[in-house]
Design a binder for these strands. Structure first.
Lengths: 385, 385
DNA sequence: GCTCAATAATTTCCTTCGTCAAGTATTGAT
DNA sequence: ATCAATACTTGACGAAGGAAATTATTGAGC
């Protein structure tokens, strides 16, 4: 974080993170929150203020009896530094520039003719240049780039071990992206990146445990337990899409059957809608159209899909008991069709107090994936990379 | 831990825990393991040796080229202190005295006519007296008692919030047990206690994440993620028994249907075996008998149950990816009947590398529950209670 | 047997971090 | 104006752990 410093006092990181996620907050409140003395907070905050990451807000008016000296809350200086985030998919690069509060300032995207690593890296370089040299002139105040890729990614080494969608094997993404862009690069799995973003800047703020479920072509899940992202000892975690909820359910491409994804994945929905509508070339959008116009059979497809997602979420709630769960469907807002079924399926299967777990269900603008990527580079700054 | 000390340097706790779980180990190896300097280990170990908890073993012969000074590994002095553990069930108290290595030295049990809290506490006092004043004369070297209770328990306050089997509501178990026994009492949920025991002294040793699945009347699961026991934000976690794996499955007492427990719980197995054998008063043991003598229908009941357990375990592996999973059936060793089906059901549903997760399946002597209770009091000592 | 390289453990010194307690700043109420 | 209440700062202190020199103990090579 600081020039030439690789690690930084834990209190400094803790203060930075807390101000970042818990908005303007006084030193005394921070001390309580972080279980530190107020003196320690003062000391930890100083270098952050000196470096321009934090600022002191004007004193707030106090309430209550007695009164006392008003707090001068610490706040993030959002424009102290900017971060590029890029989500890499098989046919597109989506890029954003975010400020330190993870607010998107500029966005851009590029279609990819092929997902070949060389091509992607060239296009990535151009996309980053477009973003940084375009309006706003962020170049001078940007040092970091976060990349989000689906598949098996090692954030430590920046290596993409295997990405089925991109057909990548052992691509040294960080190294190559750093060479091309000149920025400090952080690489992370896309769902994990989105989970971190939601945990730091979204609805997961303050939650000690938290789950994010993504519904789209695949169905994924990012998990935060004990304040830390769960990674899985064998590299597998959050595979909510491949939990079996119906022993007699349809075959899944994973080799099992009755998986959530085999019932509620976009592909599964299209397949079922084609069957019951008799239109073999029907698309997902067509299915949505039909359902919205009251096609009973297609509505039933969405209902079953929603129920399956609810079942998967209930499994998460019953097993790890997160403080809250966010369900976010990518692409268009079509998922409002099965939202009530997700809730019903969840409620029916949640055990005891697990049913109290608040559920947020909302569409996910595609740009969010890129914002997630930017967030991991913010996290890298805070951790003092 | 130390007289009049409530908290203790983290390094001391870390060294104590590592020696406890990772057997005799040299200071240098500890330093590597704990990411400390060797000097820090020397300092942290000294008070533990002075207090008699650790001892230095004779130097071991060294191998390899060059050689060097032989290590003098640190080892636990197992008989430096003893711990009572009692598992409280609705009709029985099972108690043990363990040494510091969690080896059972004495055990005893008492039938309970009623599970009324007053009665239980009286009986508990007598049981502890029997254990400590019987052969071995452990009284003088025993200061701690661990209690394991099923249901919703607060280990911080020692309060049993709600225990369905015992029909207890808000019983101040720690306070009352301390008054009766004169020992420092730790209260914990039974499955969690067993999970800690397995994580510290059993097959979970060294695992950063770990799951213990208990199969009996109910089907439960203790989860360790990031080295810490998962508790669930709303007090619910590890409810593997109420994951739904069959949308058309049998009704479960929890209100949902197709739960693992509704297919593989002891009650469910008896119910199904009665149906297909036509013997309305058949017991669990009878069902085992029939299956072992080749009754095809009853074998099928066990096969389905095993498959359901496998499905639950696969859900755990897919979601949190523990480094290993132990499945332990309580009571008699009848569960060998469906062991292969558990493995098959798991393998079929585990996604990708999750299938690599090693599975141990073995019967669970009932005394193990009490040993788990003793383990939480050992943990309390180490944490410096 | 002597020397040397290798490894283990200890010791000493020093830095860092954070607490504690005293002191300063700023407000509303009386 | 004074006082109580609250926020923040400061500086002395202590505890914890790192770095590196020192001591301890072995086997290998001569």
């Amino acid at each position: 974080m600081f020039p030439e410093a690789d690690a930084v006092a834990p209190a400094v990181t803790a203060v930075f993170t807390a101000v970042l996620t818990e908005g303007p907050i006084s030193r005394v409140a921070l001390a309580r929150r972080l279980d530190l003395s107020s003196g320690a907070v003062t000391k930890a905050a100083r270098p952050l203020i000196d470096l321009g990451y934090l600022e002191e807000l004007a004193a707030t008016e106090r309430t209550g009896p007695g009164a006392g000296r008003p707090a001068s809350p610490l706040a993030i200086r959002a424009d102290s530094e900017f971060f590029v985030g890029v989500k890499i998919t098989a046919d597109e690069l989506i890029g954003v520039v975010c400020d330190l509060r993870a607010q998107v300032r500029v966005s851009a995207h590029r279609r990819l003719p092929v997902a070949d690593a060389d091509q992607v890296l060239t296009q990535l370089g151009e996309l980053v240049d477009d973003l940084l040299d375009g309006p706003g002139d962020y170049r001078a105040r940007t040092r970091r780039l976060g990349l989000a890729v689906s598949g098996d990614v090692d954030p430590i080494t920046g290596l993409v071990r295997y990405s089925p969608f991109l057909r990548w094997h052992d691509v040294a993404l960080r190294e190559r992206a750093e060479k091309i862009t000149g920025l400090a690069v952080t690489v992370e799995n896309d769902v994990k990146a989105l989970t971190i973003a939601e945990h730091w800047f979204g609805e997961g703020v303050g939650a000690e445990s938290f789950a994010l479920v993504t519904v789209g072509a695949g169905i994924g899940c990012g998990l935060v337990v004990g304040g830390r992202l769960v990674s899985g000892a064998h590299g597998v975690a959050g595979e909510i899409g491949h939990i079996g909820i119906d022993v007699d359910g349809p075959d899944c491409h994973c080799g099992s059957r009755g998986c959530v994804e085999a019932i509620a994945g976009a592909g599964a929905i299209v397949r079922q809608a084609r069957l019951c509508s008799g239109r073999p070339s029907l698309t997902f959008e067509d299915a949505v159209e039909l359902a919205r116009h009251g096609d009973v059979a297609v509505c039933e497809v969405f209902a079953r899909a929603g129920d399956a997602i609810g079942a998967g979420i209930a499994a998460v709630a019953n097993l790890v008991g997160p403080a809250r769960i966010v369900v976010s469907g990518e692409g268009l807002a079509a998922y409002d069709l099965f939202e009530p079924h997700i809730r019903a399926g969840f409620q029916r299967r949640a055990f005891g107090a697990a049913a109290d777990c608040p559920l947020s269900i909302r569409p996910l603008p595609f740009e969010e994936w890129a914002r997630g990527a930017a967030t991991v580079s913010i996290k890298a700054l805070v951790a003092a990379g």
